[in-house]
Design a protein around this nucleic acid. Structure first.
Length: 226
DNA sequence: GCGACAG
DNA sequence: ATCTTGTCGC
């Protein structure tokens, strides 16, 4: 798939891409999971994005390998269009990954997006791989009811009378993370996997490691300025 | 028109 | 997203 070069083109493409998202379980046995994230410079006129994916054993969470990719000249950060900025380099990193993941946890939202096409959805339909969106803050919607300050607590994330995801407190005393469907998975199954891939820290292991890997990719690409 | 706004 | 030491709390 070729990606749009302008924000206007990206917006025009969103409806048909969103229509391709599969919101039910259509996954293989999960043996290898991966985390996906990107790192950028705070102010960067060249709009360079450093992406990384880390593969790990789904059961032991042992890292199996990682890959990175850097791309300049894409879209700037625009709320709602994040996927079009990060997926191109992420797809490149995916192609270089030494192990093929059966499921990918993406840093950012999936279906919890104004047009149902968060970065996790776009990566999923692009690669045709099951994905889950794991975000650290809200883009749209609000948490229904109270979220207990207990590890494991969950509450529905609702927007326009629709459940678009869930807030999950992965650690007592920490802000929740927001889980939503990316592609080829149900919300229930997604929540079960995020829980299973946690290590007592706020972020699940795949996403946490991917964040560190993406930072390393950025520093390695540009040691002087970052 | 105004405010909100993943990373 | 990134810039950063010390500090508060379990």
């Amino acid at each position: 798939m070729d990606f749009p070069t302008t924000a206007a083109a990206a917006r025009l493409l969103q409806p048909e891409l969103a229509a391709r998202v599969i919101t039910q379980d259509a996954l293989p046995p999960i043996r290898v999971v991966a985390g996906a994230d990107a790192s950028t410079l705070r102010f960067d006129p060249t709009r360079t994005v450093h992406a990384a994916m880390v593969a790990l054993d789904a059961e032991t969470l042992t890292p199996l390998g990682e890959a990175g990719a850097t791309r300049a000249g894409g879209l700037p950060y625009i709320p709602g269009l994040l996927g079009f900025r990060e997926v191109p380099p992420l797809a490149e990193a995916f192609a270089r990954l030494p192990a093929r993941p059966d499921l990918i946890l993406v840093d950012g939202h999936g279906l919890a997006h104004p047009r149902g096409l968060g970065v996790a959805c776009l990566l999923g339909v692009t690669l045709d791989v099951p994905t889950i969106g794991v975000a650290k803050s809200l883009l749209v919607g609000s948490v229904e009811g109270a979220l207990a300050d207990t590890a494991g607590a969950e509450a529905p994330l609702v927007w326009k009378d629709q459940v678009i995801g869930a807030a999950m407190r992965t650690r007592r005393g920490a802000n929740p993370i927001y889980v939503s469907i990316g592609h080829r998975i149900s919300l229930r199954t997604a929540l079960a996997w995020v829980r299973a891939l946690g290590r007592g820290r706020r972020l699940p292991e795949p996403t946490r490691l991917a964040h560190e890997a993406a930072t390393r990719v950025r520093l390695a690409a540009r040691p002087a300025a970052g």
